[in-house]
Design a protein around this nucleic acid. Structure first.
Lengths: 145, 145
DNA sequence: CACTATATAGTAATCATTACTATTTGTAAA
DNA sequence: TTTACAAATAGTAATGATTACTATATAGTG
């Protein structure tokens, strides 16, 4: 199922309306850049791309907009990024459940997950050193609040 | 198979010897703290813990030591952490191959991965919103260098 | 078209990370 | 042992990412 640009634009308008966010040129241009992106851009990368259209947009606007788009679910944050470096003393093969509210990481072991096969296509892209399943959600502690 | 503290100490000495790293009190204490840790501490958290034993150790030493331990494989870095926030415009269910050298993230789709079951134990720990397989390794581009 | 809550540009403050330097120390060889 | 010196450290500074602030501008409603 292919999602076309019309659908995306509609989603953008709907989600903004839902939360009472105004449709500004800045937000529109940032959204368009996200739709075009095939990578996982940083705020600064988006800022640079957007400035080609809106030459005097501020970094702050881009950054805040990306964060609000993330809340709206128009874009996701790649797991872990933007957090402080975290060191993992547990060297056993294990997997993660991450809470997206408090950023706590819960380790768990699972044989089925350990055994997942690496797809051919990925094997051709590089050498795999580590396989991990990352489950994201809201932990019980945060759910209670 | 349980790994005991003797084995860990030996691994510490061996890995340091292998790379010509001196065994300093600072490194020993930092290693001990890592072995004790059951969480995914930040450099600052380790710094605070280590200061209880070595009250005037500098943050820089802790930080550098953690990075060198990471290179030695005595500890791992939780995927993504320490990197700039990265935004993911691709809303389709997909998975990641991350290069640990250049930090590039390659998206791929895989039905088998989409269908993995969430273990009972994890379901009790919270509500799962996203399931992703994260493969880490070295991409062809970096391998060539 | 006017009003007002919201958004913006420009900039400053904060925090994490990394770099630097003078001094100290682990370790190998005498 | 003692000595010599490469490597490591403490203390601190520089950099870079993120977040906060404020006066001005504007989207969208009535």
């Amino acid at each position: 199922m292919k999602i076309n640009n019309e659908d995306l634009k509609k989603m953008f308008y709907d989600k903004c309306a839902e939360r009472g966010l105004k449709i500004t040129p800045q937000r529109s241009v940032i959204f368009d850049e996200l739709v075009k992106a095939t990578d996982h851009p940083t705020a600064d990368a988006i800022y640079k791309r957007v400035r080609k259209t809106l030459s005097n947009i501020s970094f702050d606007t881009v950054y805040r907009t990306l964060l609000s788009f993330t809340e709206l679910g128009l874009v996701n944050l790649v797991e872990g990024t933007g957090e402080q470096k975290r060191f993992e003393p547990n060297l056993r093969h294990h997997h993660h459940f991450r809470c997206i509210k408090c950023y706590t990481i819960y380790d768990f072991e699972n044989d089925a997950y350990n055994d997942i096969a690496v797809p051919e296509a990925v094997q051709r892209q590089g050498v795999i050193i580590n396989k991990r399943v990352v489950l994201e959600g809201i932990c019980s502690r945060c759910k209670g609040k």
